[in-house]
Design a protein around this nucleic acid. Sequence first.
RNA 1: CGGGAUGUAGCGCAGCCCGGUAGCGCGCGUCGUUCGGGACGACGAGGUCGCAGGUUCGAAUCCUGUCAUCCCGACCA
Length: 490
Amino acid sequence: MSKGITSRSEDYSQWYNELVTKADLAEHSAVRGCMVIKPYGYAIWEKMQATLDQMFKDTGHSNAYFPLFIPKSFFSKEASHVEGFATECAVVTHYRLKNDGTGKIVVDENAKLEEELIVRPTSETIIWNTYRGWIESYRDLPILVNQWANVVRWEMRTRLFLRTAEFLWQEGHTAHATEQEAVEEAERMLHVYADFVENWLALPVVRGTKTENERFAGAINTYCIEALMQDGKALQAGTSHFLGQNFAKAFDVKFTSKEGKLDYVWATSWGVSTRLMGALIMAHSDDAGLVLPPKLAPIQVVIVPIYKTDEERNEIGELADELIAAFKQKGITVKYDDRDTQRPGFKFAEWELKGVPVRITIGARDLKQGNVEIARRDLQSKETVSKEGLADTVEQLLEAMQQSIYDKALAYRNAHVTEVNSYEEFREVLESKGGFVSAHWDGTVETEKRVKEETKATIRCIPLDNKLEEGTCIFTGKVSKQRVLFAKAY
RNA sequence: CGGGAUGUAGCGCAGCCCGGUAGCGCGCGUCGUUCGGGACGACGAGGUCGCAGGUUCGAAUCCUGUCAUCCCGACCA
């Protein structure tokens, strides 16, 4: 491992790339745009998954699994949905390979599929085609299903975790008897996401809705949570869609109501992906490496012994065993790094790079005095504390760190929401300071597009709790009823 | 998909212009000394030069194609 990584100020993109690979989270694969998520990175994803999965179950959802392949014809059924995805679909056209006689493996042209299959970019179509068979009466509703799956979107430009051609996610797909119920579901899941990202990723988010321009293809309304990264760019961390009756109409999914009336079913869908990993990495990490909020850290505490003789090593080992047992009892995950092949300084740097929240160092000196040295990753600070009641000390420290990491991100976010009242000011803030820019907008797609062309900033969202206030659009000067949040985004 | 750059040992790079069969640093292995912030010494292992063609007596080096990565653009619920 080479020493150090590129600093954020030097080159933010490179800092991110090096961090992902050097902290052993993921690497590029032999396949264009696709990544290998390595065990340490996957362990973080598994923690996210486990937590979200429980949250979904607590809100009444069940998991199911739908096919990876979708018949091409399904896609043409919902016009705006097709348009949204047509340019980035992988298509399966054949089902067999053969030896061409010279030892080369080639596609067998005789094995052409009658109907081509699309590798799912999202599963609305296959799911709604299935739901048709599940739903007859209001008694069959609601259907509250989630699936954990991989999807493929043939992106032109990819970045580890942030945008890859294949990624992992969950997609919830629900069916309801009434519009109101579906809207409530979409909003409920948005709040579940916000709750998760704020309390587990320690990352504050803005809850809002998308403009028509940024909306999911096929949705009536798209709710989103938007987070701010350290370089001042916004990142969409999750979305929840109210789909109206669009997919029910496209796939002819009707139900008989209590009153005996036949009507189309109301739908939602919602998802978060491995992109959350990118958000997590960019939000908190520093020039020494990853900074992980304790709740998502695969290893919360690492113990590094410092010894000269085997005797010392054994004595420290005994103390470490006691501490480890106490930690485990509290559900704290701990790693004892007694590798004899690396020196302590090397280990310090390595575990810092990997973002382990707490490091405990025990040397001969500490043994004598009944102390240990305890270092916290987020502040890069260390102090000497008594080994008595250490598990309690660490438990409290981990909680404090979770909060402190969130508070720091919140302070940064709050300092980077800027209200502007003129286009000049708008451009100036985007250029110099970055972050969210709160400005009046006339509500038209044309204006949003023009602003994007000129400044690269898009409307990230219309905040849910937005206060209404009269104003004039910064771009056109037309009347506006409220401010919206613009930002350059990932 | 357009413009630019890169691809040589696990990682970072030199060599390429001016063709003659590959080198440096880190890492890796063994032994010894070390060990409270990325140790040191000695010896050693490791590369069909991204891949495929072509030119040539001879290609890491020249030509063509192709794949991948990075940056900028277009695109991206």
